[in-house]
Amino acid sequence: MTRFLLTEDKVITFIEHLQKQKNVFAPHKRGTNSFAFEQVSDPASVMLDYTRTLHSVKKYFMPPREQLLSFSLTDNSFAEPTVDPVDAIFLGVHSYDLQAVFKLDHNFSEGNPEKNYLKRREGALFVGVTFAPDQWHFSGSVGINPNDADGFDVFLFAVENGYAVEAFTPAGESLLSGFEMSEFNSDIPAAADFNQHIYVPQGKLSEVFDNAWDNEVWEETSKECVGCGTCNMVCPTCYCFNVEDGVDVTATVGQRERHWDACMTRDFSEVAGGEVFREELAARQRHRVYRKFKYISDKTGQPWCVGCGRCTASCSAKISIVNIVNKLVQDHEQATVAPV
């Protein structure tokens, strides 16, 4: 496929070109040190060089809060909300975040396919961009590299003074058509190395987790963890939710709303009557990590973690999932080495 050179000074006109075709969502600065995907109104405020966004693009397909239905208490009837495809261009997506979308696609299509998610997902186009691993990224350990264009419609490979642009799908080609760029014929420079790694591949991890249930790491970690649920809330592959009814103060109408939920919180597994099935923080931490590397992974053959590093970067105690997994790997290897 042909690659084109998008020089730094042409990025804004390139975004304007995309805006003529569909709504564009891209990373923007949020707060002091953070980034977030927002709809582009001013192309100059788009940040293509960013570490990671607070939330992944998951928030567009599974909104943090979402109305499942609205109801009337006067006649006990309900109405469906309208769910429209997001049908937009997602610009500046990192490879791990697109892989996370594909994992959610799996979760919402298998078994009982969910209309809300799948409907919103229609028409989304992804324009990727190279990322520079910071101290928390470890996606290389789960097979996702900064220049992985897998699944993208268009990818912007970081090169000197700009980006080498390549379309990978017909939809991607049409995004580029009509935008003047010269061809780029050099090699793409190798992406920067990761600063942290999980030592073993998923194939081996399944075995590690077979022997990790009683590892002391769960208890140790639970001393630092306060169970705030942040790691769940920022995870691009977490999709658990709770559903609650809200009633207007007139007590005549209301809505049934779902919102993201966190298995790290105590009341997540609480049933009516007060029994809590994962009462200990250690058990909750274990459940979270098993969900990322064992439970779904055994069924799909893939890790359900994309190595974005959000859970650690956002944790006020800086509990590292990489350190947890590596400790399990280490203990597993020591236990399985034949005695001399």
Binding site: R30, G31, T32, N33, S34, A36, L54, H55, K59, P64, R65, G229, T230, M233, V234, H259, W260, S314, S316
Partner: peptide, 8 residues
């Protein structure tokens, strides 16, 4: 707080 995507 995270549901609102506030910066921590």
């Amino acid at each position: 707080c995270k549901l609102k995507e506030n910066e921590c």
